[in-house]
Structures are given as structure tokens and as C-alpha cells.
Design a protein around this nucleic acid. Structure first.
Lengths: 259, 259
DNA sequence: CCGTATTTGTTCGTATGTATT
DNA sequence: CAATACATACGAACAAATACG
């Protein structure tokens, strides 16, 4: 016939979920019960459930059952913040504290590394040159929010930015600290891509092991007055609970209507 | 012991693909051959391949075989284009014509619709009010690139923008046409999210039926001089072949180093 | 803490259907 | 039409995680 049985079952269950007939967080019928309902074998029922799992509609937990996934309220971050505006931290982001959720960061892990080809290219330094890497894990409330790594060329240290290599937060933000030293960011360029998470990201964000939930990778290059590139920041966000805003030109201050 | 066999097989194949031992576009061993190689049953081998399919690493074609997926060169679009700059079409995007790939659009499908709650909210019109919807399919070369729908409040038509309801392209772009009528966009706000594709999108972009490849949804609201919202544009891109740039402040004109 | 029942996870075997060459 | 390769479907068994008395 036309549609295979497992997809028909999946579709039937999907409709029940999307119309709310099966409530969020509620348990689906067990595989045995579904076998009965649809007169199908256990493997076929499982194939149907796998479709829903891949779409993120349900979550199966061994020993417990299969449950309708809870929809998470996305974090909204603004990408287009005028440089130098405000005492921002390592990020260019206006944090999503609007609805009372306050972002926080781990103490940075600071390393001196040989620049990866991508970072070297972005900073316009030679391959094999060293950079300072400052890596942090960021939270909102108790929720894991993002992984962020900034890379600075060693020349900044030689120019006096010694605190960059201290494994401690720089209060007021790195940008403010560098500005004191005369290194001002006058603009930045960013790219936004989506890719499957690597193992580290999967573990940190507790993403499903099947790589179903991709991550945003935001790659930013900061420019100083003379046009030099003085910093690269790579931030990774799970795509299922994040959303980004951009503003261009004159826009009223009122809140956006996301999604 | 620990790792199930199908994941071990998947991992082994993944490494072979990522190291290039199995070249792009090359055919994987058939399921029968893999059964032999790994001393596993056909179902187990298929489970392993399903993992790779979900990650987008391979593509199975019935009757032919399973092949290593070709990596597509992403289209890069700039999101932060100053309004009024250039004669852009229905989009706010600087098109990715840099590498000789020219974007093209279908003739718009124009409809008068009752605004969805989201569109109504974004345009700040009452629920149930009507809007003009202009929907287009966009290509780069022969590749499917994006689906775009713009919504305009009916009040624009009453103010003289009659050509908005013609099912024909507006040469020079809608923005330029509206500007002639004194309706100028002075800024916009956009949101970027990622979600699984719906059936229409899956069919149009020829995305795998399992919903593995999510789509970008870019939602933009345009503002005019008086702060009114006069247009909402929703553009959907497959996330596996698109990437976005933003520029803020002073950035040199040179090309970015994406990814 | 232990044992048992329940539920999903993994693996096998087998048969048949469908797409492609 | 036949051969090949993936897709769907069933049945069965055991493992692993969890819940509960």
C-alpha cells in the first residue's frame, strides 16, 4: 500500500500529541498496549516511536515508559549589540534576563594553545602561532545554556593585557579591560551555523545521544580601530532552547514577538 | 560489554568516513558485506547505519546501496543589511552571489488571508484581520534555497499599494515600490530559530523523511518612520546548507572566514 | 536491601516488499 | 525478467533500567 504501517502509527500518535489529546509530560501507552491498539508487532511500534523521538516529540526512558516531551521556553539573545555599549562580559549578547532568568558563568578555563587553522585564519595570524583560549560554561538559572571559548592573539599579552592569562573572571568584562589598555572593539562580524553536537557538547548539554538536536555555532571576530582582528569567540548553544534576535536600523524599543 | 554492538559498528564506520578512508560519495559495503565484516545480524547492521543516517553522514538508496553523503558548500547570507541600501527584493539579504551562484525566485503566489495569531501579533493588528501574503520559492542555481512568505497589512493597499496584490514580481523590489509611495522601512527586527521541517518544507527541499535536517526560520518585522510595523517576512532555509552572517559596527569589507 | 514486576533497549532470525540496475 | 540492495514487518529472547512492595 501507500504509507508503511510504522509511519501511520507515528502520524496518529503525532496528531494526538500536537492536538493536546496526549498532554505534555504524560506517558504514552506502553509498547505492549500500542501493539494491541494498532495490531502491530513490537518492532513496528518501536519504529513508530523512533520517528517521534527523532522529531523530539517524545522521550523514552528505560524502565519507566515513553513520555511526551515538554516544550521548553526558549532563551532569546540579541546578537546585534553595538560594540562598546555597556559593560558586557565575554559575550556580545544582551542576556535573556528579561523574564527573571539570570545568566551565570563558570570560572574560565584559560589555556595557551596553538591556534587551530580556523582560529588562525580568523585572527589573520600564521598557522602554528599561539593564542590565549578562555573557555567558559554558561548557565541560566540551573539550566545549561552555552559553551563559549574566546581566543586572543599572544600579541595582546605582549602589549600589556596580562590579565587575559589569569584563570579568573575579569570583572567588568574583558572588553572593558582591553579598552583601558587602548584596545577598543569598533565592530564585529559573526556567522551563525547549525551542526550536530560533538561528544563533549552532547554530554554537557545532556542532549539525546542520537545527535537529533543540533547546536548553534556562533563564530565572532572582533575588530579594533586599525582594522586588526583581536579576538575570536565561538559560542555553542543547543538549538532546541535558544533563539536569536537581530536589530538593524531604527526599531522601537518595545519587546519583540518571538516565534 | 558497555557499548551496544550497533553503536560500535556505527562508530567504526563514522571514523572511516571522517578520516576520509571512505571517500565522499563512495558506496559503503552492502548490508550483507557488513554482516560478514562485523559478525552481526542484518538488523544490527541496519541499526548502525541508521545512526549514521540520522547524523547525515550517509544516505541509503533502495536498490543501489548506501553512500557517504557529499558535504555541501553552504550558502552564506548576510542578515544585517542596512534598510534602504540597494534595490533588494523581497528579502533583507545580501545574496550569496559571491561565488558565482546567482539567486532566482519563482513568481510569487499572492493570497489574501486571515492573519495567523503570530503574524497578527507581529504586525500589531487585531486577530482575524486580513493580510496580503506573498509567497515565493527561491533558488540558487538549480539548488533549492529558501521558502519565503511576506505579510502586509491590508491598510497598505488602501493607502495605494495596489501592486502588492498582483501575482507578479515587482521589479526593483517591494521595498522600492513602497518607498515611492512614501512607505519607507527604517529598520527591522529579526529572530532566528531552528525547528524540524513540516511536510511541505520536507518535500520542497527534498529533506530526508525522518526530519533529521532541521530548518532555519527567520522571522522579520519591518518598521516604518512612524514606528509602525508594515511587513512581516518568514523565510525558511534548510540548516544543512545555509549559514548567516551579521556585521555590527565598523568591519573591514574583506570577506569573512566562515566556519 | 532484596527480589520481582514492568518497561524500554539490544540482538537475533526470517520473510516479504519495493526500487534500481 | 532477473539479480541486487535497501525497506518493512513479524516473532522471539535476553539485557538493562526503574519502580515498588
Amino acid at each position: 500500500m501507500s504509507e508503511p504501517m510504522y509511519r501511520q502509527i507515528a502520524d496518529d500518535l503525532r496528531v494526538k500529541i500536537e492536538t493536546g489529546e496526549t498532554a505534555q509530560g504524560a506517558q504514552l501507552p506502553t509498547e505492549i498496549e500500542l501493539m494491541d491498539q494498532y495490531k502491530a508487532s513490537r518492532n513496528t511500534v518501536r519504529d513508530a516511536i523512533k520517528v517521534l523521538t527523532t522529531r523530539g516529540l517524545v522521550e523514552a526512558r528505560a524502565g519507566q515508559g515513553t513520555f511526551v516531551a515538554e516544550k521548553v521556553k526558549p532563551f532569546v539573545s540579541t546578537l546585534t549589540v553595538e560594540p562598546g555599549a555597556g559593560a558586557e562580559d565575554d559575550v556580545y549578547l544582551a542576556e535573556p534576563k528579561a523574564d527573571g532568568r539570570e545568566p551565570a558563568s563558570s570560572v574560565p578555563r584559560v589555556e595557551i594553545q596553538v591556534a587551530s587553522p580556523q582560529v588562525a585564519e580568523a585572527l589573520r595570524i600564521g598557522p602554528g602561532e599561539q593564542v590565549v583560549s578562555r573557555h567558559r560554561e554558561r548557565f541560566i538559572g540551573r539550566k545549561l545554556w552555552s559553551l563559549e571559548t574566546s581566543f586572543y592573539p599572544m600579541s595582546l599579552i605582549e602589549d600589556g593585557a596580562a590579565r587575559l592569562i589569569e584563570a579568573a573572571p575579569i570583572e567588568g568584562g574583558v572588553l572593558a579591560y582591553l579598552a583601558e589598555l587602548g584596545i577598543r572593539e569598533v565592530g564585529y562580524r559573526g556567522s551563525i551555523a547549525v551542526r550536530p553536537p560533538d561528544d563533549r557538547e552532547q554530554a554537557f548539554f545532556k542532549l539525546s545521544a542520537d545527535g537529533r538536536v543540533p547546536v548553534f555555532e556562533i563564530f565572532r571576530v572582533g575588530f579594533r580601530q586599525n582594522g586588526d582582528r583581536f579576538r575570536v569567540t565561538v559560542t555553542v548553544y543547543p538549538s532546541d532552547r535558544n533563539q536569536f534576535l537581530i536589530k538593524v536600523g531604527d526599531v522601537p524599543a518595545a519587546q519583540a514577538a518571538p516565534r
